[in-house]
């Protein structure tokens, strides 16, 4: 598997939290979702990859060619190839849409102003004359659309998007999935997307590869289809719960029965029990993995 990003022994420390990734490869030509609870380390990992946070230990290799120390050399063009969308601290609030167009032209050689203007119109960031509207006057959703317009207006090889779906409405989330899919299709295997998300269900149809991060560590990763083979969704009545519990990876109980995830390799341990088996969704796998590794205390026995 060719990788667009290779993370080797990455460590970044905050007070009470350490991101610790011994090894991680983001596959080239696919859309990879970074999934995890709040504070799991998704944004930190994305920021390190995008090169907007630097004081980490370890190495990041870009496009199977450049090391992180070579990333900042303009002649290598590594930053030109990465379209990064970050948090609310992305644009100065006093900038307007027209200023961002001109500034982007100065910051990135591969920026296309006409494509940016077209995206601003297409995504309905503001109606009518748009260039004078300030970032501070935009809603969270429109601010995210503006960030997306700025990165999609560039010729890049990797998009690193931090929570792009969170502030968007359902229609725009669907449009975002289409934009990501079009971006990958037009790249003929040379373009990749890495995004973090809490909206797993909405983004599932565009996710090829998933990395589930918990407490600063990678808890699970793999192609979505492989993960759906690795786990099986088990449903049963309350009478079967105690017998099934030891075989289950995670479990949710209600007064009507239980639902849990079981590793395919452990399925034989459920033999003879009155349970139904289904193929899990990425959302169900992610929640199960997160619950197993979460620090949040729950009423349910897991």
């Amino acid at each position: 598997m060719e990788s667009v990003i290779e993370v080797i022994d990455l460590k970044k420390r905050f007070k009470g939290f350490t991101l610790d990734i011994p090894e991680l490869k983001i596959p080239k030509g696919f859309a990879t979702a970074l999934i995890g609870e709040n504070g799991a380390g998704k944004t930190t990992l994305l920021n390190c990859i995008a090169g907007v946070r630097l004081n980490y230990k370890g190495h990041i290799r870009y496009f199977e060619k450049w090391q992180d120390e070579e990333r900042d050399r303009e002649e290598n063009g590594v930053r030109e190839q990465i379209g990064y969308v970050g948090s609310g601290l992305y644009f100065l609030p006093q900038w307007d849409i027209g200023q961002i167009e001109k500034l982007s032209g100065l910051l990135f050689q591969n920026f296309h102003p006409e494509r940016y203007r077209e995206l601003c119109r297409e995504l309905a960031i503001v109606s009518g004359e748009t260039s004078g509207k300030k970032v501070s006057e935009l809603s969270d959703g429109n601010r995210m659309k503006l960030m997306l317009a700025a990165v999609f207006a560039r010729d890049t090889s990797l998009l690193a998007l931090d929570e792009p779906a969170s502030p968007l409405d359902p229609v725009m989330r669907e449009r975002l999935c289409e934009m990501i899919r079009e971006y990958l299709d037009q790249g003929n295997g040379e373009r990749s997307v890495l995004f973090s998300t809490h909206n797993i269900s909405d983004m599932e149809n565009v996710t090829d590869y998933a990395v589930i991060v918990e407490q600063g560590r990678v808890a699970e990763q793999g192609f979505v289809e492989d993960l759906k083979e690795k786990y099986v969704l088990v449903k049963g009545e309350t009478s079967a719960v105690e017998a099934a519990r030891p075989a289950l990876y995670s479990i949710s109980e209600s007064r009507y029965g239980f639902e849990g995830l079981c590793l395919s390799e452990n399925l034989d341990r459920l033999a003879g029990l009155s349970v139904s088996l289904e193929r899990p969704s990425l959302f169900q796998i992610s929640v199960a993995v997160m619950k197993r590794n979460s620090q949040i205390k729950r009423g349910n026995k897991a």
Binding site: V52, V78, Y84, L89, L92, P93, L106, A150
Partner: peptide, 12 residues
């Protein structure tokens, strides 16, 4: 340093 991330993402 609010609003700097966009500038920080560029080599220039």
């Amino acid at each position: 340093a609010q609003g700097m991330d966009y500038l920080m993402s560029s080599a220039r």
